[in-house]
Amino acid sequence: MTIDDRRQRDRTAQRLLITLTARTIAEREGWAAVTTRRLSTEIEYSQPVIYKHFSSLDDLVEAVALDGFDELAAALESARSDSAADVQLAAVALAYLDYAAEHPALYDAMFTRSTSLRFGTDETPPPLAAAYAQLRAAIDSVSDPRDPETLTEVLWSALHGLVALSRAGRLRAGREAERVELLARSLQP
């Protein structure tokens, strides 16, 4: 291994440690607790090392969000591929809700915090596109003859609304499967 290869490996490991630590703190205490001072204390790197990888805390949150989109895409793909065609949509919807419930701070970074990450543009990062593609794939089996892009946006909006309302205690507990089943049926042709 060359010196440059080792340096790159070390930089990659540092970046991963910073993002994982930020995510851990956020899941435990919320994003307000994630500061460069706190990160430097937790991981025993100086603040300049953190700023060498991320120009701001917003950049760090975006990196964490991108990791989350990779994970969400994998969870949705697994739910879709492990389900029969007639229940794929409901399985994907439940997987989405489960992911949001299991990772609330990460979900905030992905969907509710202000970021420069954008869907539906030429600059959409691959992890965002991959997560969206899994929702779209679940919709493809029920969209005919309707516009699958619009149906995917409706599904995504409904799921995000269910997450937000559930987290705020605005919906009755324990009814997620019933809601998802009703949503999936309503999107059927």
Rank of each mutant, 00 (worst) to 15 (best):
A33N: 03
R146V: 03
L183E: 08
D122T: 11
H53N: 08
G169K: 08
V61A: 06
L135I: 06
A91R: 09
E77Y: 01
T152Q: 04
E44H: 05
T124F: 06
Q134Y: 04
P189E: 14
E102R: 15
S81W: 12
V61F: 02
L39M: 06
I50V: 12
L155W: 08
Y99D: 00
Q14K: 14
V49Q: 14
R185D: 14
F54Q: 04
T150I: 13
A173D: 15
R179P: 15
T115F: 11
R15E: 12
P125N: 10
R15C: 10
R113E: 11
P189D: 15
S186Y: 07
A85V: 12
P127E: 03
A168E: 12
H160Q: 13
A75M: 07
D140K: 02
V49P: 05
L72H: 02
G68I: 02
A26V: 05
L159K: 05
A177H: 14
S78Q: 13
D147S: 13
L106W: 03
A74G: 09
V34F: 01
D82L: 09
R185V: 09
A79F: 01
R113N: 07
R80Y: 02
R172Y: 11
S116H: 11
P125Y: 03
R175H: 11
L128Y: 03
R118V: 15
A74F: 09
V154E: 09
E178H: 10
H53R: 08
R6P: 03
V180T: 05
S46N: 13
D144V: 03
T41K: 14
H53S: 10
V64N: 03
V142D: 03
A129F: 04
P48N: 14
A73F: 09
T24K: 11
Y107R: 10
E181C: 02
S83L: 05
R6L: 15
L155M: 08
E44W: 02
G174M: 02
T2D: 13
P189V: 13
A101F: 07
A109L: 01
T152V: 04
L106S: 05
S83W: 03
A133Y: 09
S81K: 13
E149D: 15
E29H: 13
Y99N: 03
S166Y: 04
D144K: 10
R11L: 15
G161T: 04
H53K: 08
T150F: 13
G30E: 09
P145Y: 11
L128E: 02
D98C: 11
T21Y: 04
R170G: 08
F111P: 00
G169S: 10
L66S: 02
A75H: 09
Q134D: 07
H53M: 09
G120M: 09
T41Q: 15
P48V: 05
D82S: 15
S141V: 05
L117G: 07
L117I: 06
D147Q: 15
E71C: 11
T124Y: 00
T121A: 06
T21K: 02
R28F: 10
P127C: 12
R172G: 00
Q188W: 04
T152I: 01
M110V: 04
A130T: 03
A26F: 01
A33V: 10
F54S: 00
D67H: 10
A129M: 08
P125C: 06
H103R: 14
A84S: 15
S143W: 07
Q134N: 04
A130C: 11
R175W: 00
